[in-house]
Design a protein around this nucleic acid. Structure first.
Length: 525
DNA sequence: AAAAAAC
């Protein structure tokens, strides 16, 4: 497949991209996620060569060193090739992605794409997952002349349109951009006969289902549909009934229940001690690489900066970062250039990183099920994983919800060098949810409180601090004396990198507050 | 409460 990417995604080593398909054998034992393979190794395992894939695809599989399909692959591929709808209940790490990419390549290899009419469509909830699927197509389609396009937000639409105009065989998309482009007339889905809805449970959580319904309604009812979800909640079942017709249902479970392959621990500390506690844990862990989850994007930035400041090799990943940074950071982590990935729940599910030794929860997740997804990033391929969490004394409820869901208590652990607390302890810092900020030096605070940074700040014509209260609007008309600019027309965001101009010495205090992207790390010791 | 996803 000649990879026509609309993204500027960095090249990926075959090893990491192939991680969705567990290696057949590394050290003599089946590096499998499935009980079928570990429980009955003496049983003859199916071979890829028996699945009816043609020579170019088989050769790509061979070259990547795979001989045995995973259970979901062995079960799904024949049915997909038969033209059946498939309902797959499987998580990442089971080889799910190749269970649809391989037969899709086979079915598409006979003919060619037509302009603006993709022949197949794969829907993914996040851009990172979309990229991961695209890499799968590149790897397995290397001996086919098929094209694919990545249709995701955050990147140039013109470029994506151009690729679509030339015609693509496989379109891999996140819902927002797909609908956007469709509504602009850049896309026709009438010829799309293969549809994959991946990570359906997550799409549901993220509120994508109306979008998915809309997209499905654009497709021909003659299509073949593959629908994947990690769980089969009633709501998901209802969706499956709506989108699929007489599907072959395939369920594969992951053997790694939390207890057996992941060692867990929970330390209760004061909020002020969290970063110190984490550093201690990071230093004392026998750690190859680690993901650290935070509940908030802001905290991801703060924590990552702090870790770097303390000499750790860390990078940040969350949805407010530019797309190029997101892909580059993930790639650096996967290839070992970064040891620690600090992220939001953007990476809690789906993203497949081979050989991750540790997961840390800097915050306990709000929803217990997210805990399971987060720590499921480690403990793969037969190795013991490690998942350690930090909690504050007021978060007993979150911990209990997790223990109830998993049916296992999380052993309490203590971190050296910080106050190890108990649920009954009072938070050290009084004053409710917000910690009192000790950032006096960084922020020039005049005796009068700084005005809120709302451009709409209405009449406040105090004489002396007049300049301080000047709304941004005034600044614009000041700088753009005569000719209105695109920025004035609201076509461009306010200049981010150009310092503050137009005030001479009298720059309003609020404009000197740190910007979001210039994260200030509050003191923690 | 938070995160993700379109400009």
């Amino acid at each position: 497949m000649s990879a026509k990417k609309t993204s500027s995604a960095p090249a990926r080593s075959a090893k990491t991209a192939a991680a969705a398909v567990p290696a057949a054998s590394i050290d003599g034992t089946a590096a499998s996620d499935t009980p079928a393979q570990t429980a009955a190794p003496e049983q003859a395992q199916p071979l890829f060569s028996e699945l009816g894939l043609s020579a170019p695809i088989q050769q790509a599989i061979d070259e990547m060193g795979y001989r045995h399909p995973t259970p979901i692959q062995a079960q799904a591929i024949p049915y997909v090739l038969m033209g059946r709808d498939v309902l797959g209940v499987a998580q990442t790490g089971t080889g799910k992605t190749a269970s649809f990419t391989l037969p899709m390549l086979e079915m598409l290899s006979g003919s060619r794409a037509r302009a603006r009419m993709p022949r197949s469509l794969i829907l993914e909830p996040t851009r990172e997952l979309a990229l991961q699927v695209a890499e799968n197509f590149v790897n397995y389609g290397k001996y086919l002349k098929l094209t694919h396009a990545l249709l995701i937000g955050g990147e140039s639409m013109a470029e994506q349109k151009e690729v679509l105009n030339r015609g693509v065989d496989v379109l891999i998309a996140t819902p927002g951009r797909l609908i956007d482009l469709f509504e602009r007339g850049g896309l026709l889905l009438t010829q799309t006969r293969l549809l994959v809805i991946d990570e359906a449970d997550r799409m549901l959580d993220m509120g994508f289902i109306p979008d998915i319904e809309k997209i499905v309604s654009m497709l021909s009812p003659l299509r073949q549909t593959m629908f994947f979800s990690a769980t089969m909640a009633p709501e998901i079942r209802r969706l499956a009934d709506m989108f699929l017709s007489n599907p072959k249902e395939i369920t594969v479970s992951r053997p790694s229940s939390v207890a057996t392959t992941i060692e867990t621990g929970l330390a209760v500390v004061d909020a002020h001690d969290k970063r110190r506690a984490l550093r201690k844990m990071l230093r004392e862990a026998d750690m190859q690489n680690a993901i650290v989850f935070c509940n908030r994007k802001r905290d991801v930035d703060v924590l990552c900066k702090s870790l770097i400041k303390h000499g750790f090799s860390a990078g940040a990943l969350h949805g407010d970062l530019p797309q190029s940074t997101r892909f580059a950071t993930l790639d650096a982590f996967k290839t070992g250039k970064l040891q620690i990935l600090v992220c939001s729940d953007i990476a809690a599910r789906g993203i497949d990183i081979g050989g991750l030794s540790h997961v840390f929860n800097f915050d306990l997740p709000f929803h217990a099920e997210d805990y399971v997804h987060r720590i499921g990033r480690t403990g793969r391929a037969g190795r013991t994983g490690h998942a350690y969490s930090l909690a504050t004394p007021d978060e007993e409820g979150l911990a209990q919800a997790i223990e109830k869901l998993t049916g296992k208590p999380i052993p309490r652990i203590e971190v050296n060098g910080v106050d190890n607390l108990d649920w009954s302890d009072e938070p050290r810092s009084a004053g409710g949810r917000r910690k009192p900020r000790k950032d006096s030096a960084a922020q020039p605070k005049s005796s009068a409180p700084a005005p809120a940074p709302t451009p709409a700040a209405p009449a406040a014509p105090a004489p002396a601090p007049a300049a301080e209260k000047a709304p941004r609007k005034g600044r614009r008309s000041d700088t753009a004396a005569s000719a209105p600019t695109r920025r004035d027309a609201g076509l461009l965001p306010p200049a981010a990198d150009q310092g503050i101009v137009g005030f001479g010495e009298d720059i309003p205090a609020f404009m000197q507050l740190p910007r979001r992207e210039k994260t200030v790390i509050p003191a923690d010791e």
